[in-house]
């Protein structure tokens, strides 16, 4: 330690595995609920609502009677006034399956563990919110393939299994998000929301991963973990750029102009991702690793429509 230490940029210390999810963080998340644009039918009643002619309590609207409808759902008072046969529809609260897809490729460990820890906290937060709303939560860690999977679970008490699941992960391998879509499609009978937590550095293209979820009838939500340092490698001069995931190298002379061009390209790519998601009505939010995670969960996600 020297007297020049105060000049050096302070790095955010990496959280130990035990400190990843502290109690204060959990308490803040309790009152949040996951928003969903679509309603899914569930086996169990929950706080999620679907408009079906059924046994719900809260009236929603009418629809014309068609043969085969439950006669008990006919609104006789309307028939008395208008002589039209209408069936009452009620909103029924049902449970929702939420799959959290966490990218554990090597790029998530780039520049230290800050990015990976941040992503794991985000995933844990989403899982906690879902479990608190009595949603059914499953977790998938994916890199080149699905590395690990947590079976669907329900109830707030399952959060510790989630923590356990997240603590055991290490970033390695290449990104292949489409593998997650294939695995979830094959193993989950019920479709639901798939929340992707990733830096989206997929050599095959981030579109393939998101589309794979959409084609499997999941409603994807994208939490794009970003880091400003990705846009500037810091070094200048003749260097060998090495890809963290593939190890491929490329000799480059890094000039200020080239770095500026790359910064623009990186920004353009982020807008490209955002535009892709918007065009397909995929909820999208960026989460910078330098940002306060609690604030991101409470404000950023609320603004992006991910939480109520």
């Amino acid at each position: 330690m020297g007297w020049l230490d105060w000049l050096r940029p302070k790095k955010k210390p990496a959280a130990s595995e035990a400190e990843l999810f502290d109690e204060a963080f959990q308490r803040k998340l309790e009152y949040l609920a996951v928003a969903s644009r679509r309603l899914f039918a569930g086996r169990m009643r929950a706080e999620r609502r679907t408009r079906i002619a059924g046994s719900g309590i809260e009236f929603a609207d009418h629809r014309p009677y068609t043969p085969g409808d439950d006669l008990r759902a006919l609104d006789w008072s309307v028939y008395g006034r208008t002589e039209r046969l209408l069936v009452k529809r009620f909103e029924e609260e049902e449970d929702l399956t939420i799959a959290i897809v966490l990218d554990v490729s090597a790029s998530m460990g780039f520049g230290g563990r800050a990015r990976f820890d941040h992503a794991r906290r985000l995933a844990a937060a989403m899982a906690y919110l879902s479990l608190s709303n009595l949603d059914r939560v499953t977790m998938v860690a994916v890199s080149t393939k699905v590395v690990r999977r947590l079976p669907p679970a329900r109830g707030r008490g399952q959060i510790f299994k989630v923590f356990e699941f997240l603590r055991g992960l290490e970033p390695s391998g290449e990104t292949a998000l489409s593998e997650a879509g294939r695995t979830l499609g094959a193993e989950l009978k019920r479709r639901g929301v798939a929340i992707v937590v990733s830096d989206l550095y997929d050599p095959a293209g981030f579109e393939r991963g998101i589309n794979a979820l959409r084609y499997q009838k999941f409603e994807p939500m994208v939490i794009h973990v970003t880091d400003a340092r990705d846009a500037d490698p810091g070094a200048r001069g003749d260097v060998l750029l090495v890809d963290t995931e593939t190890g491929d190298g490329r000799e480059v002379t890094l000039t200020p102009a080239l770095v500026a061009r790359f910064r623009d390209a990186h920004s353009h790519w982020r807008h490209e991702v955002e535009g892709f998601c918007k065009a397909r009505r995929v909820a999208y939010a960026q989460a910078d690793v330098e940002g306060a995670l609690e604030e991101q969960v409470l404000n950023l996600f609320r603004r992006s429509g991910l939480v109520e």
Partner: peptide, 9 residues
């Protein structure tokens, strides 16, 4: 050359 790691070549 110096090796510089990048997350996404």
């Amino acid at each position: 050359r110096r090796r510089v790691l990048v997350p996404f070549a």
